[in-house]
Design a binder for these strands. Structure first.
Length: 625
RNA sequence: GCCAAUGUAGCUCAGCCUGGCUAGAGCAUUCGACUUGUAAUCGAAAGGUCGUGGGUUCAGAUCCCAUCAUUGGCUCCA
């Protein structure tokens, strides 16, 4: 007996006509709809008997118990086997099974009828399984059926055996249980987080409140969970980070492209890649096509590279896209603020290399790039820990490469080693930010992919005029942009907790300079001053509201504005500016030129974009308190 | 997805356990007064489907059930 068991949101079936002579009688041709159930497609095979039926139903019940489902539909399905039992035996065994399951809400679809059906299968790991039950030895395989669009990777992941080590810059490899973490508390957190999955926190991450207070981003209840909206401040910050990362990747040699956000699940190049990953994508049906929203930039770039005429002389060749968005339908319980989203912005740079040596050179360059990009975004080496994951074979052949990466970082690194290759890559490294609650989130990452060149039919002609698949590196120098904002806010919250003033990097501050006129009569002067400052590409606004000076300063402080210029009698008649610097809380007097100079030194080489709200605060709606 | 907690005005929260006047406060908003010298000027007004849908009750923000969202834990993170 062969059974394909599916945990479904719903199924609808309609008997259309009799397929065989001794089909079930008295069948209604109405459509039957059932919800929240397990559908068992059953093919009864030659030699099956009551014992097999009994065994089958007990296995089905067993797994239904695990997933907490109490409704079962037995669906006769001949196409699972080429060795079918006779219809009469099949009917009787199916009836027997139905009877044995009568403690559940059980039903069956008519035997021997051609039926049309519509099914919606759930996306969790246990939703799909196939069973083969025979008389002699009853076997059970809880693995996802290979016939279905499902996840080979899920199967692999559950079987995957990882060996965990810490690799020090001096080349010493220590199993994590033996490593002395006393000087590396964050690495210890990462190790526990990754290997033992041990976490204990009971407060919400501080960035969630901050992203609202600073009017950066918020949940959008009208969308799906994990799809955020960005207010003008947030959009400005995000846009600047996007521009910066893109500029850096282009400097490094990436060529920017743009590719569709949705793909046909049945496109030949997609099927096998797609099936290797958990079914966590958004699906869209359109005119008979089953489309899915991309979860990375890989597809678009690979399909594009497939059409390139590449020679070894062109390699390494780098394609880059900043995906707005990539979509991953993470489980609802996994979503948190800006840390884990269902729609996120991901810089993704793929490098096609002619051989392993070239990819190893390249991966080192990209390591430096990633580290530098993070640093310029305000995320220091001490904020993150590195993990490197690879197959044992790769390590044996490229021990030095792994050690070089660790030496570059200059501190011990978490190592995960696999006996076999389960994923498409042989090595992957990533930087993990460890927040003040001990949570780890991956930022920059790079992978050495040895499968997708072949899978997507990407090839180049080598020195010997032979078509060869390139090795592909997958690098995100910063990780998701939203996650960068999360890190900056978490760092600020941590500063605040330690009694320091929280602050965003100056180049990312929505308002960089605020002018406060003491009385209305100075408004014109302030306007002129604002024009002058803003002509140097500085975001300056004016708090012209009718509030006390103390209050307006307090407001500016709450918005984390770095420079506050109060303008009164004295300033209006002087060449100098009175500058309140949030960093120190003190008021300084500086000439206009000196101030601009000081300012510009801090934002050098960073992108600029103008104010994203009215210049006059009196014209600004209150978005958040 | 599973388990738990939370959901009351634009925001932060009180009220809920023990059902009962017209559901309160601060901030924000509007109006008025004040014309301000470096982290909250004073007064008034307006603002609420108590997340949503059912149920119990003479009566539900309050008790019960379901559902949605957020947060935490589990799982997961290509």
């Amino acid at each position: 007996m062969r059974i394909l068991q599916l945990h479904c949101d719903s199924i609808e079936f309609t008997p259309t006509k009799k397929e065989i002579k001794n089909a079930e009688e008295n069948v209604s041709k109405e459509t039957t709809r059932l919800e929240e159930l397990v559908v068992a497609f059953v093919a009864v095979e030659k030699g099956d008997d009551s014992l097999v039926a009994k065994d089958a139903i007990s296995q089905i019940k067993n797994s239904m118990d695990k997933i907490g489902c109490k409704k079962l539909l037995l669906y006769p399905y001949a196409h699972l086997s080429s060795n079918l039992a006779s219809p009469s035996i099949a009917i009787s065994l199916l009836k027997e099974m139905e009877l044995l399951a009568s403690d559940l809400d059980v039903s069956h679809s008519p035997f021997g009828w051609t039926k049309s059906y519509k099914i919606q299968v759930k996306g969790h790991p246990l939703a799909e399984s196939s069973k083969v039950i025979t008389k002699k030895e009853t076997t059970f395989s809880g693995e996802p059926s290979k016939d279905e669009i499902t996840s080979e990777a899920l199967k692999s992941e559950s079987k995957i055996k990882s060996f965990w080590y810490v690799l020090s810059p001096d080349g010493k490899m220590t199993p994590i249980s033996d490593f002395n973490f006393s000087n590396h508390p964050k690495l210890e957190l990462l190790s526990k987080y990754e290997s033992a999955k041990k976490r204990s926190v009971d407060e919400p991450p501080p960035h969630v409140a901050l992203m609202k207070k600073l009017a950066i981003a918020d949940y959008e209840p009208a969308s799906d969970s994990g799809n955020m909206r960005f207010f003008p401040n947030g959009r400005l910050i995000k846009s600047l980070i996007e521009q910066y990362v893109t500029a850096r990747v282009k400097d490094y040699g990436g060529y920017e492209v743009e590719t569709p956000i949705m793909y046909d699940s049945h496109h030949p190049s997609m099927v096998s890649y797609f099936n290797r990953f958990p079914a966590r994508q958004y699906n869209i049906d359109s005119e008979g096509k089953q489309l899915f929203l991309r979860f990375a930039a890989c597809f678009g770039q690979f399909l594009m590279a497939n059409e390139f005429q590449l020679s070894y002389k062109n390699l390494p060749f780098r394609l880059y896209e900043l995906t707005r968005y990539s979509f991953r339908r993470e489980q609802s319980g996994e979503l948190v603020g800006l840390r884990r989203l269902r729609a996120f912005t991901m810089p993704d740079c793929h490098c096609f290399c002619k051989d392993m040596n070239q990819s190893i050179d390249e991966i080192k360059t990209r390591f430096d790039l990633s580290q530098s990009v993070l640093g310029e975004l305000g995320i220091e080496e001490s904020d993150y820990e590195m993990a490197i994951r690879f197959t044992e074979d790769f390590y044996k052949e490229n021990k030095k490469t792994v050690e070089d990466l660790v030496r570059k970082l200059g501190k011990p690194v978490l190592i995960e080693m696999w006996k076999e290759k389960f994923f498409y890559f042989v090595l992957k490294w990533e930087f993990n930010f460890i927040d003040s609650l001990g949570k780890a989130s991956a930022l920059s990452t790079d992978q050495i992919d040895v499968e997708n060149g072949n899978r997507y039919g990407i090839d180049f002609v080598d020195e010997n005029n032979v078509k060869t698949n390139p090795i592909i590196l997958h690098n995100s120098p910063s990780g998701a942009i939203e996650r960068i904002i999360y890190v900056l806010l978490e760092k600020a919250a941590f500063d605040s907790k330690q009694g320091r003033k929280p602050q965003l990097p100056l180049w990312l501050s929505p308002t960089q300079v605020r002018i406060i006129p003491l009385k209305d009569e100075f408004n014109d002067f302030c306007n002129t001053l604002a024009e002058k400052i803003s002509s140097h590409n500085i975001r300056v606004d004016i708090d012209d509201r009718n509030d006390s000076i103390g209050k307006r300063i307090r407001e500016a402080e709450k918005e984390w504005i770095r420079y506050i210029l109060v303008v009164g009698e004295k300033e209006a008649n002087s060449e100098n500016l009175s500058i309140r610097d949030r960093k120190t809380g003190n008021v300084r007097e500086l000439s206009f030129g000196d101030f601009i100079k000081e300012f510009k030194e801090q934002t050098r080489n960073k992108p600029f974009s103008g104010l994203n709200m009215p210049k006059l605060l009196s014209q600004r709606p209150q978005l958040m308190v």
